[in-house]
Simulated scan of single mutants.
Amino acid sequence: MQVNKKKRRTLYECAHARVGTGRIYCNQKYPLSQASLDGSLDVHRLEEGKQLAPKVCQQCDDFDCMGPPVPEEERGWLNMKEVKEHGSTDRQALREAVA
């Protein structure tokens, strides 16, 4: 028996996803999270390479795919393996550069 797994839409591939002031938001004004007052997500989810596939995106009529999804191994930049290898000072410098 073959299971047909539906591909989930992610913010990594949507042209309407934006990052600003430490938050991820939709420039089409869709709420990405019910947990925040403005509907945005904390940018730490992106920094850590976590899955970014909000429910609202799955059936969004305005979803504008800008290409294939970013492979999981290429997501995020707060990889603990890299911190051990390069030290936390590089991690802090990168964090300040994107802030």
Rank of each mutant, 00 (worst) to 15 (best):
M1H: 01
M1R: 00
M1W: 05
Q2I: 13
V3G: 04
V3M: 00
N4R: 06
K5M: 07
K5L: 02
K7D: 00
R9C: 05
R9N: 15
R9Q: 10
R9W: 03
T10F: 07
T10G: 14
E13Q: 15
E13W: 14
E13A: 15
C14F: 07
C14Q: 10
A15I: 06
A17W: 12
A17Y: 12
V19K: 07
G20D: 13
G20A: 09
T21D: 14
T21L: 12
G22K: 09
G22I: 12
R23Y: 03
Y25R: 12
C26Y: 10
N27T: 00
Q28K: 14
K29V: 08
K29D: 08
K29Y: 12
L32S: 09
L32Y: 12
S33Q: 10
Q34F: 14
A35I: 10
A35C: 08
A35K: 15
L37T: 01
D38S: 11
G39K: 06
S40Y: 03
S40W: 01
S40E: 01
L41H: 07
L41W: 08
V43C: 08
V43F: 05
V43P: 07
H44I: 02
R45I: 02
L46G: 02
E47K: 01
E48D: 09
G49A: 12
K50I: 01
Q51M: 11
Q51E: 15
A53H: 09
A53N: 14
P54F: 06
P54A: 09
K55R: 09
K55I: 01
V56T: 12
V56S: 07
Q58L: 14
Q58R: 03
Q59T: 12
C60K: 09
D61A: 11
D62C: 00
D62P: 01
F63A: 05
F63L: 08
M66E: 02
G67M: 03
G67L: 00
P68K: 12
V70C: 06
V70G: 03
E72F: 00
E72N: 02
E72M: 04
E73K: 14
E73G: 11
E73H: 13
E74K: 09
E74I: 02
E74A: 07
R75I: 06
R75A: 04
R75D: 00
G76A: 08
L78D: 13
N79S: 13
N79A: 13
M80Y: 11
M80W: 10
E82D: 14
V83D: 00
E85R: 10
H86E: 11
G87M: 01
D90H: 11
D90F: 10
R91W: 13
Q92W: 12
L94F: 02
L94C: 02
L94D: 00
L94R: 00
R95F: 15
R95D: 14
R95N: 12
E96N: 09
E96F: 08
A97R: 06
A97D: 05
V98M: 13
